[in-house]
Design a protein around this nucleic acid. Structure first.
Lengths: 111, 111
DNA sequence: AATTATGTATAAGAATCTTATGTATATTTG
DNA sequence: CAAATATACATAAGATTCTTATACATAATT
């Protein structure tokens, strides 16, 4: 990520949510999707992405499947069963996080 | 913080916003305030808080003022002029961050 | 022909946080 | 009244996550 420190810690959640939504994706595709959705505001660097994908795979959250397209390598990732369950938790945590942050910075509104 | 990884990177913003709102606060007070506002969901640990306060002070974001209350030490922190300016930026970044995260996890809604 | 885009990968270092520990006084509880 | 909890600050070792830089390779564009 090439942004404010705030994104620190959110990469795994982003990856998992995108995979939940799209079934399977490869690394480069994830970076492009995130860039598109955030209108260029959030740029995920390879140095952050690939280690994160490898770790999620090692933890049994993701499965990998290699394909060769146009003579180029692609590693498609998808959620395992465990990963799908874990994604629900992560998204719930994200909702709590956002709600808490809004309470902190916007104490006049009710949440 | 004693929570999900998501809070990583948000501590400085939280501190600065609370100081902007309350004028001056001491460390322990900040932890209690955050706990109260988030209904116990976000607990800031001393190991995270004090180094963060010292760093913000070293960066010229915060000023410190020592008081002795009930024979116990208190270090009151407040925003410097630079800190006040910087807080506006941080809060703007936080808004962008929240908006982007919502776009990513809730792609059906418009933002 | 050179640059950009596509595609994955790792390694050194920075930044932030967790966990554990330390010191000290005041208040509450059993 | 002794013990536990609350108040108050601090640091150090280690974990985690990310940045920055580098590496390799093919395809497409300028």
């Amino acid at each position: 990520m090439k942004n404010s420190q705030l994104y620190k810690g959110s990469l795994n959640t982003i990856i998992m949510k995108l995979l939940e939504e799209n079934g399977k994706m490869y690394g480069y595709e994830i970076t492009q999707k995130v860039k598109a959705i955030t209108q260029g505001e959030l740029v995920i660097t390879e140095g952050a992405l690939y280690p994160a994908l490898h770790k999620l795979e090692a933890e049994g959250i993701l499965d990998v499947e290699i394909e060769k397209v146009d003579n180029r390598l692609r590693k498609y990732y998808k959620l395992t069963e465990k990963g799908t369950t874990e994604t629900v938790n992560r998204l719930s945590e994200l909702e709590d996080f956002i709600r808490n942050m809004q309470s902190l910075v916007n104490p006049k509104l009710e949440f």
